[in-house]
Amino acid sequence: MANKPNLKVNIGKLTLKNPVMSASGTFGYGDEYAEFVDLSTLGAIVVKGLSLKPKQGNPPPRIAETPSGMLNAIGLQNIGIDNFIKKKMPFLRTCKTKVIVNFFGDSIDEYVKAAEKLSSVDGIDALEMNISCPNKQEGWIVFGTDPKVTHKVVSAVRSAAKLPLIVKLSPNVTDISYMAQVAEDAGADALSLINTLTGMAIDVQSRKPKLANITGGLSGPAIKPVALRMVWECFRKVHIPIIGMGGIITSDDAIEFILAGASAVAVGTANFIYPGVTSDIVRGIRTYMSSEGITSITDLTGAIKCRTNRL
């Protein structure tokens, strides 16, 4: 009889029981999903992005459905790091899964202070640094789109953070694999990609944009082929693990990302539609491994079979 498939993966120094996590901003702070998912079956929970001070976010309407996807312009509304530590961490410590905290700042100084603060909190296993929200003002967008600024902010956070550091990259750049190398060079332990693609939608009757913010971030199955291509491109340029995300709904979607080069995956928009989907995806990956005779999930990372080794 074949051995039980091993789903364990390492993201730098962080070991996950399986490669499936929630994508930041789609899973709240975990507690809202406890009713629908056995959280202990997940590789990790990645919480909604936090800042030093609470943020109100953008005015409504904030979301609009598009074909096989959705646009959002939430604007990083969050309860702030202090409230998170006080009100949400006690629950997260009981979840028997890894806790990854997504965070951002409005300046390099704020990023550093946030990373320092979160590093000393018991029960947080890793940090995911958001430099790629498409709904922030122009002066902020440079954190994820100007390689010099990206290097500076990631380096500064790297020095301050005592936990494994994941950098979440923007797809809204000319060459994401270059940005991936910049983040690696600046000391990132792993990369998350992709964040949402900037998009918009217009109501033809009123001629108004469907979002109050005019533009928003596109997510869902509509972006999966783009995300997959970006993971594949980055995998061939960096040596640190990649967490792949963008439109994953099924375990086959997740396996595609792993074959393209992801060590782990994050599930986002699908949580809104099927609140129990993350756990289903873990089960589906296990079934796939058993039927394909794969003993360790790590054997699948980057195992895409290409006829030509195009560079």
């Binding site: 901003g25 709240g28 809202e32 999903y33 109100q56 005015p59 409504p60 509304q77 609140p275």
Partner: peptide
């Protein structure tokens, strides 16, 4: 009424402006 994605409080898409914030 507001556009919403999840219905369970996580997408933060359906907020309205109130005297106590969104």
């Amino acid at each position: 009424e507001q556009n919403m994605a999840c219905g369970i409080g996580t997408c933060l898409g359906c907020v309205v402006k109130t005297r106590k914030g969104h």
